[in-house]
């Protein structure tokens, strides 16, 4: 499967190390489901797996939020409007938006983890009456590391959402919460017996979030996590993304927690 050239329509700086690319397909838009990812190819530098963070109902505009942390993503940061980038995808198992219909949707995210969940927020808001409460709990490193701040504020002001956020460290001018995202869970407003929980963040953050959700009484088969492993081919051939029996490029990245409970937290799996 070859990369398909896309034109960069817009580059938006989100934080110190994070930026959002809006891409226009040179030929035909690809339908995607919330949680899926693309392999983005930077000419000569290589490929990187990046989740899709745009609106699933508007696939003509392909949106990716990228954190510049490796060779490829650093090269990606240097790209400008009008440059081209290669895209393969979309790949992977999506967030359970269908299963969530009629239930409370609880999203717990940390850092760049908000990006893969943003399509879920768009989807729920676009189909608002199909879902119960929409809860978003978001943790970031510092106030300056938060993504999509203006949009976040719009979500927060809506009467039909419960949105809370926290940072790990802040100066005195910060009036929001300080502390880890798991501390937001006990007081969050949702029905644990009828909720689907979707978690995206560093593995350790997800581990403590699952524990906190269990304390709230959410059963493990209602919890979904997005796992990360090295991604090379994205077509179940290179072996890199294995997590126990799962190929994260197709069985994941989103996995139902009870299916990986025996592996999760085991070292170096």
């Amino acid at each position: 499967m070859l990369p398909v050239p896309h034109r960069i329509e817009r580059v938006r700086r989100e934080t110190r190390d994070t930026f959002t690319l809006e891409l226009a397909p040179v030929s035909g838009a690809a339908i995607f489901s919330p949680g899926q990812f693309n392999m983005l190819y930077v000419f000569g530098a290589g490929e990187s797996a990046i989740s899709i963070s745009g609106h699933p109902g508007r696939p003509e505009k392909l949106v990716h939020t990228v954190r510049a942390v490796g060779v490829v993503t650093r090269a990606m940061r240097k790209l400008k409007r009008g440059d081209s980038i290669g895209v393969r995808g979309p790949f992977g198992a999506p967030w359970p938006v269908d299963l969530s219909e009629g239930r409370d949707v609880v999203l717990v995210t940390g850092g760049i983890g908000l990006a893969p969940l943003r399509p879920v927020i768009y989807h729920v808001l676009a189909n608002r009456n199909k879902y119960g409460k929409l809860v978003l709990l978001y943790g970031a490193r510092t106030p300056a590391d938060r993504l999509y701040t203006r949009e976040f504020e719009r979500w927060r002001r809506r009467p039909d959402t419960y949105i809370d956020s926290t940072v790990d460290a802040a100066g005195r001018d910060w009036t929001g919460n300080v502390g880890v995202v798991t501390r937001l869970i006990p007081r969050a407003d949702f029905d644990a017996a009828n909720a689907i929980v979707m978690i995206c963040g560093p593995e350790i953050m997800m581990r403590y979030t699952v524990a906190e959700m269990q304390k709230r009484g959410v059963s493990l088969d209602r919890i979904f996590v997005s796992m990360e492993r090295n991604m090379k081919c994205a077509v179940v051939a290179c072996g890199h993304c294995q997590y126990g029996p799962h190929f994260l490029c197709s069985d994941g990245p989103v996995l139902r927690f009870d299916r990986i409970a025996g592996l999760f937290g085991k070292r170096e799996i």
């Binding site: 000569g44 490929e47 072996g239 890199h240």
Partner: peptide, 30 residues
């Protein structure tokens, strides 16, 4: 298992992607 290598020539106008056998015994693999 395989990995891929992306290269460019000295002019920077031509790039290639090569696939080669890889092994789960390397640290880079994961």
């Amino acid at each position: 298992c395989t990995t891929v290598e992306d290269t460019t020539d000295l002019t920077g106008d031509h790039a290639e992607r090569w696939r080669r056998w890889d092994s789960c015994f390397t640290q880079d693999f994961s």
